[in-house]
Nucleic acid binder design. Structure first.
Lengths: 157, 157
DNA sequence: AGAAGAAAGTTGACGCGTCAACGAAAAAGG
DNA sequence: CCTTTTTCGTTGACGCGTCAACTTTCTTCT
């Protein structure tokens, strides 16, 4: 079997498959971030990301986090629940909309965020510094274009 | 809280965080591939990837798959187990190494692979066509460089 | 005002991806 | 040789990510 194949993927084909490369690179970066965060702050990657959103936007509703990040609302819900149980965020009932609520740091949560921030910044810088400025620009443009391509790809297939 | 912050991430910062963009793009592409594969062939993404490896390399040992792809050996083990239970691959005991074995398509497995292949090829092409040839080249170079950067990053942090 | 529809959040199920622990077998090296 | 180390595959545990079902509340439309 398998050896009577009609020239489809060559032996070096894998590294040239865009989604394969994308997937491997992201998986590595992801695992690394998770290790760093667990080691330095004892939090998961999702928790860190919620922290970043709160720090960026201030007091915010879960639905708004979903809009800004495209994270799954189920994941956001569970992550906030965990952060709240650990006293890292406080939850303020929204007066205007009784379905929703607003999330914000507690002092302990913010302190934890500040503890992890320096290393995460250095990390981000190392990634950027690995590329020439022009490459970085092309990379982000490519991200945008691929994102657009994804929008209507399933119809075209 | 959160509003007495000292200029760290601006409101538009998220899309400029490389690992954030990488993560979102990959997550979308991943989910799309999974949907397509489930719909057209009833298989998962991991199963498809094992198929691609077998088709590329022929009869192969799990450890070799791990070497070629950097997939986790636990995941590879479970995926092969599932493929075997469903009659999609056969397992040939290795004579030289009694710890290992060789995986290959069954006819049904290969048929299933061939059923999914066209759409997955079109998909790969749509991704490539979304970028200019130069951008594609830069993108793959960026993947290589970021991969290298990851190799020793944890020491530098 | 009342009914229909949409949006917010929660929860359960499942696949992906990593890590660690383990037993069996092979390789290395004294 | 025979001990030590390494490799191969399996398994369990856990977090990420998606999807779907469901409840509550809000909005829209007539």
């Amino acid at each position: 079997m398998a050896n009577d194949r009609h020239t489809s993927y060559s032996a070096e084909a894998l590294p040239k498959l865009m989604t394969f490369r994308l997937s491997r690179l992201q998986a590595r970066a992801n695992a690394q971030a998770a290790r760093i965060l667990m080691k330095h702050a004892g939090i998961s990657l999702s928790e860190w990301r919620i922290f970043v959103i709160i720090e960026t936007n201030g007091k915010i509703a879960p639905a708004e986090i979903v809009r800004l990040t495209q994270f799954d609302k189920g994941l956001v819900s569970r992550t906030i629940k965990k952060l709240h149980e650990n006293g890292m965020v406080r939850i303020e009932n929204s007066e205007s909309d009784h379905r929703s609520h607003l999330i914000d740091f507690t002092p302990q949560g913010f302190a934890l965020f500040e503890r992890a921030r320096p290393i995460m910044r250095r990390r981000q810088k190392l990634f950027r510094d690995a590329l020439e400025p022009e490459e970085l620009e092309v990379l982000f443009r490519a991200f945008d274009k691929l994102d657009l391509a994804l929008d209507d790809m399933e119809d075209k297939l």
